[in-house]
Amino acid sequence: MSESIMKTDVVIVGAGPVGLFAVFELGLLDLKCHVIDILDRPGGQCTELYPEKPIYDIPGYPVITGQQLTEKLMQQIAPFGAEFHLARMVEKLDIQPDGSFVVATDAGDIFHARVVVIAAGGGSFQPKRPPIEGIEAFEGKSVFYSVRRMEDFRGEDVVIVGGGDSALDWTVSLAPLAKSLTLVHRRDEFRGAPATVNQMRELVASGRMNLVIGQVSGLEGANGALLAVRLKTRDGSEISVPATRMLPFFGLTMKLGPVADWGLALNDNLIAVDTAKFESSVPGIFAIGDINHYPGKLKLILSGFHEAALMAQAAKKIVSPDERVIFQYTTSSTKLQKKLGVA
């Protein structure tokens, strides 16, 4: 095996609250973890969807926000030094002849792990795709959900769709480069930063870009090359604007993604597990949190925490089959307290 392969006890797929707490439970048992997440920061749904929303059913916290819970968990697991690999998606999971696993990400990382813990919630966060007929054929050629290189938009007829920060930031950045730029939004109100909204308004006023209140109703072009975008304006009329590039910005949504291809028994797109170890149909691959299914399952963060604790005991037996593990409490065990850095 090449040296670039990272060897570890456990790879955790997903840095949401349950994936984070798994680091804690595995850490108490001396298992080293690498955590991979498609988002660029830990927290999963808690930080991506509802960072400021209150959660009332975390034991010990009468109320805590998604952001605060993530910060507390990061603080709690800090002593275990898990390595985070963010903004990348696990693409491949291959079982080795000895029952260990090789995990590969779309960023080119390769891990060799004894145990894989899937804590991927509702799946990978992916850009929302507008349900416009035939849009798939244009994706990656004319329709993009992010800007990798601004130069790719120079001299092009650009249509940006959306009313949030991404749509506005790229409108302001790309307007000077593009041959033409049209921003399409459903209403004449924008959620983005006021300064950027003002910049956009000035560009419109000086005739350097167009603002259309309406929505995209169709795409024109062939072989992936976009030529025009049809828009339905607020007054109900249809117009066509030249477009060789389109950038829809409707935020993120969760998709199961590559997990479906890993050969695990699924139950309605959820990973079937037992309730003693939360192990999938493949020994050594565990699934905890919202992504698993078992009779009586409740999609609660606290259920995921419980699942992490039991999973860790089973994972330990795989990594260290000959070691006798004594069940201990953090309150009374000096050994555990040393691991936590408090004794």
Binding site: P130, P131, R186, Q215
Partner: peptide
């Protein structure tokens, strides 16, 4: 809710 409707691609 209006702000979230901005995130609906087929509004």
């Amino acid at each position: 809710e209006e702000n979230m409707l901005d995130m609906v691609p087929d509004v």
